[in-house]
Lab assay of single mutants.
Amino acid sequence: VTLFVALYDYEAITEDDLSFHKGEKFQILNSSEGDWWEARSLTTGETGYIPSNYVAPVD
């Protein structure tokens, strides 16, 4: 499982989006939707859509 880490803070715009803070880690559930990925936060356990350009793979 490839994990991703937030590079910036993000505040949800719609109820389907997931708010997060810089440094938060995610498991990507679906990355086939283009620039918005469905993800689960490993910090909160919540799922929602995140902007793919706000995250990077964890080394």
Rank of each mutant, 00 (worst) to 15 (best):
E11A: 10
G45T: 03
Y8R: 07
W36R: 15
D35K: 10
D35V: 11
L18G: 00
N53K: 14
F4T: 04
Y49C: 09
T47C: 10
F4N: 02
L3R: 05
T2D: 13
G45C: 09
I28T: 02
H21Q: 12
Y49M: 14
G34Y: 10
T44V: 01
Y8N: 07
S32G: 11
I13M: 14
S32F: 10
S31V: 10
V5N: 03
Y10V: 02
L42P: 02
G23L: 03
F20R: 00
L29R: 04
S19E: 03
A12L: 01
S52W: 08
L7F: 04
T44P: 01
G34L: 13
S31F: 15
E33N: 15
F20Y: 01
P57N: 05
Y54V: 05
A6W: 01
D59H: 13
T2P: 14
Y49H: 08
I13Q: 15
Y49K: 14
T44W: 03
A12G: 12
T44G: 03
T47A: 07
K25Y: 15
G45L: 07
D35H: 12
K22R: 10
S52E: 04
V1D: 14
L29C: 08
F4R: 04
A12I: 01
F26S: 00
T14S: 15
L42M: 12
T2R: 07
A39P: 00
V1L: 13
T43K: 13
H21N: 11
L18T: 02
G48Q: 02
T14I: 06
S32V: 10
A39S: 03
N30K: 09
A6I: 01
E46K: 15
V58Q: 07
E46N: 12
L3D: 06
W36N: 06
A39E: 00
E46P: 00
F4M: 09
S32H: 11
Y8W: 13
Y54K: 08
L18H: 02
W36S: 06
K22Y: 06
S52F: 07
A39L: 01
V55G: 01
I28N: 01
A39Q: 00
Q27N: 08
T43L: 12
Q27T: 10
T47M: 09
I50A: 01
E24H: 06
E38Q: 14
I28Q: 02
G23Q: 02
P51W: 07
D17Q: 15
G48K: 02
A6N: 00
L42N: 04
E38M: 15
E11V: 14
Q27P: 00
A6V: 01
T47Y: 08
I13W: 09
R40Q: 09
L29G: 04
N30M: 07
W37C: 04
P51Q: 06
E46V: 10
D59P: 12
T47Q: 10
L29I: 11
V55A: 04
F26I: 05
D9R: 03
T47D: 04
S32R: 10
F20I: 05
D59F: 13
A12C: 05
W37I: 07
D16A: 14
F4P: 01
L42C: 11
E15F: 10
S32Y: 10
L29H: 05
L7W: 03
V55E: 01
P51L: 07
A39F: 03
E38T: 11
G23T: 02
E46C: 12
G48A: 02
T14H: 15
T47K: 09
F26C: 01
I28K: 04
G23V: 00
K25V: 15
E33D: 15
D16K: 15
S31C: 12
Y49G: 04
S19N: 06
L18C: 02
W37H: 04
I50L: 07
K25L: 15
F26P: 00
K22S: 07
D17P: 02
D9A: 06
V55F: 10
F4K: 03
D9I: 02
S52Y: 08
T44N: 06
E24A: 05
E15N: 12
A56F: 08
N30R: 07
S19K: 04
Y54T: 05
L18R: 02
L3V: 14
G23R: 02
E46G: 08
G48E: 00
G34N: 12
V5E: 10
K22C: 08
D17R: 15
G48P: 00
D59T: 12
E46H: 12
L42T: 07
L18Q: 03
L3Y: 12
W37R: 03
T47R: 09
P57C: 06
S31Q: 14
E46M: 14
E33R: 15
E33A: 14
W36Q: 07
G45N: 09
D35P: 12
W37S: 02
E24I: 02
V5W: 07
L29V: 08
S31T: 13
D17I: 13
A6C: 02
K22P: 04
A39V: 12
D35G: 12
W37N: 01
W37T: 03
D35S: 10
V5M: 08
E38P: 06
E38R: 09
Y10C: 04
L42W: 06
T44E: 01
A56H: 08
G23S: 03
P57R: 08
P51T: 02
T43H: 13
E33I: 11
V5Q: 08
S31E: 09
E15I: 11
E38W: 15
R40D: 01
T43G: 07
A39K: 00
L42K: 04
N53F: 09
L3E: 10
Q27C: 11
F26T: 00
P51C: 08
A6P: 01
L29W: 05
T14W: 14
S19H: 07
E33G: 14
E15Y: 09
A56D: 05
D16N: 15
E38K: 10
H21S: 12
K25F: 15
K22L: 06
A56G: 09
Y10H: 06
I28V: 10
D59W: 12
E33T: 14
F26H: 01
Y49Q: 09
E11H: 11
A6T: 03
P57F: 06
Y10F: 11
P51D: 05
I28M: 04
G34Q: 13
A56V: 14
V5K: 05
A56R: 10
D16R: 15
S19M: 03
K22A: 11
N53I: 10
K25R: 13
I13S: 12
V58I: 13
A56E: 12
Y54E: 01
E24Q: 06
